[in-house]
Design a protein around this nucleic acid. Structure first.
Lengths: 214, 214
DNA sequence: GGTGGCCTACCGCATTTGCGGTAGGCCACC
DNA sequence: GGTGGCCTACCGCAAATGCGGTAGGCCACC
């Protein structure tokens, strides 16, 4: 059942030395084939039409010159919706990680890892996993634990949880289910949140939240 | 720098056979010590005061009788804020995973894994990682990005104008005023936008927009 | 000439939301 | 003991929203 054919991999990395290093190592693996090597997002897209078969996995550097890996990601996923993308970078800041995941990356590994980790990540994502370096995984989880909207004193904990649900696009009823409350209770919380934050509709709330005004 | 002292582990698992199996295996590892074995959340909390030192990691079953692992989690984190909790369960539904992470779990491994995985997860979380089974990691990422849409040319100009108004937090009527249209026309556009972007409420739309998915 | 998308505008109906109350239990502060 | 905040939950009502239609005019493409 597992494919005997090697996995088609594309590698996008601007540093020529590193690109060489990675491709040397990865292509030596029997499970992998590098079908595309690029030093920039533009080069990647240029080379795409030449391929007989699309890559199954793309290792994408974040810190590319010109169009960054992050910028290229939406277009990449649009052109190759079934291709898994693993971000590969030195950056482990929450914002870049968040952006990458929001734009469709299925993995995020840091560059200070041994090469074997890189190979493992590629294979893992092809198997339906979501390889993440230690620090990255923690960042991701951190997104759930604290409330993203932390204007501490104003809203109570419960209200922040309700707000969280609304920010995720849920209806009152869905929020109630998530928190194990009566829909009416959620409605009460919503009313209080509106009062405290001086808004008068869900749309206004989400709009302001998007603008970072919350 | 790495502690030579074994890691203090607590195991909460209601099935006596499984508990025995896990504790036998895990305690045999030189890196670990089981300082607490419990068959329920209540038992866990009862035994806590007897410990000289708090456990560094808790392996917590989700499907506990009475107070479920999910319910016990907030209290646990409150009492032991520096203890890492790894959920251990057969359930891989998004909601339970989400609940666990929101309540402070730092890992989530499924029960169909080999024992070595369990040990690896415990050590990984103690090292500051966030061990997650393959399926779980995917669920977590899915939370950031389901991505059915890439709408470069998808929306017409008019629809984008309407969308813009919605993103600004305006109601249908306000959008109509801004664009000099009938509210009904705006409503038609909104319906078409929802269809094209595969959403079914304003909140969902704004939520996705905030995540940069639009 | 037909097809199909877009823009406009309306109807009807069910659900959701916004907004005003009330209310009991709990807990902390004075 | 009173006051006030928080959490819970309900009632009622008006407005907004979601969803299914229909429909005419315009324009482009085949």
């Amino acid at each position: 059942m597992t494919s005997t054919a090697p996995l088609r991999l594309a590698l996008v990395e601007d540093d020529p030395e590193l690109r060489q290093l990675y491709s040397d190592y990865l292509c030596r693996q029997p499970e992998l084939t590098c079908v595309l090597l690029a030093g920039s997002a533009e080069s990647f897209f240029d080379q795409l039409p030449d391929l007989l078969q699309a890559p199954q996995v793309v290792l994408l550097d974040v810190g590319l010159p010109g169009r960054s890996g992050l910028d290229a990601l939406p277009r990449l996923k649009q052109l190759l919706p079934d291709t898994e993308v693993v971000m590969h970078t030195v950056f482990d800041d929450p914002d870049r990680i968040y952006q990458a995941l929001c734009r469709g990356a299925s993995g995020y590994v840091l560059k200070n890892q041994p090469l074997a980790e890189l190979k493992a990540a590629v294979l893992e994502v092809a198997r339906g996993g979501a390889p993440m370096s230690r620090a990255v995984a923690r960042q991701v989880l951190a997104h759930f634990k604290p409330m993203p909207t932390a204007q501490a004193g104003l809203l109570s904990v419960r209200e922040q949880q309700v707000l969280e649900g609304m920010v995720d696009g849920l209806s009152d009823k869905q929020v109630a289910t998530r928190l194990g409350l009566s829909p009416d209770t959620v409605r009460t919380h919503v009313k209080n949140i509106y009062r405290k934050l001086q808004v008068s509709s869900r749309a206004e709330l989400l709009s302001r939240h998007a603008k970072g005004q919350l």
